[in-house]
Amino acid sequence: MAEIVIKNVAKSFGSFQALHSIDLTISDQEFMVLLGASGCGKTTLLRIVAGLETPSQGEVWIGGRRVDKLPPRERGIAMVFQNYAVFPHLTVFENIAFGLRMKKLPQQEIDRRVNRTAELMHIEQLLKRYSGQLSGGQRQRVAVARALAMEPDVILMDEPLSNLDALLRLEMRAELKGVLDESKTTTIYVTHDQVEAMSLADRISVMNGGKIVQAASPVEVYRNPAARFVGSFIGNPPMNFLPAKRASNGQWQVAGLEMPGPVAGDALEFAIRPEDLTVSPDGFAATVRVVEPLGAHTLVTAEVGGKPFRAVLDSDLPVSPGDELRLSPKPDRVRWFDPETTRAV
């Protein structure tokens, strides 16, 4: 049973504020993904939980125990590193057994756990090899097996798949999901890859500029971004944004269209995902600039009200640059943001 509670944690390096007062609770057995661009503080937060970095302020609790003053080895965690950190001078067996030997477990138990985790990660035939004889994917498996063998309360993963090539990443992602679901261990997983985050997470914490912007389920984060940043960061292509003005009749004026909206202030930002647009005569007037056929869909980059505006359209639709289109948003998918606070309205 290991719930992780992060209370008011901040971290600065010199004059650079890497984390601003983070509060986050990760419940037992939850798979939490920290998602954000590089430099947003996600790795710093993970390293603070691991004990590899000391927070400038705040507390970290794991399983009801305050751990922020403890060294990593006393926190009941295991970590998988971006560059795998498989010890080059030890065999795969000894790598997986490393932490178990430090715990002074009996040889029998060590053998059992190494063999079990090796089997789980499909590396049982590699146990006698050294890391120099392994491929990147195999090293990654060793690193995960080494963490799992510890049977920790918490597994921390720092961009574990980012050094693999695309195909291998897809395969490992599915495998990781299965293995980690099975192990029922609380997991914090850092990535900058939104697809990875979506497919793995129970909950995603989207981070930006050292703050958590939104922490919610993948679908929630995608459908109801809590802030403009989340909408512009998640989704490929990201959300479209257009300025909206309040008309005298209480409606909102967006690029020549009038539509109903929330009752708030005089100016808002209208947002819609590119796949939530359909071609219909009462939509935005759009001039097509670039057409990218993607097979199942066609990605159209157009101009609406002088702003770039993307739409994912059916690939049967004949479009070419220069065409004039009418794009109309699905009403239930329209979102609104306050241009001042950038929060959702």
Partner: peptide, 20 residues
């Protein structure tokens, strides 16, 4: 990272230095 990995696997600073 090799040293850090050793720390998370139960080593103190000196043990990590010595073993890794």
């Amino acid at each position: 990272e090799l040293e850090e990995a050793a720390w998370t696997l139960g080593c103190n600073r000196w043990q990590a230095f010595q073993k890794v």
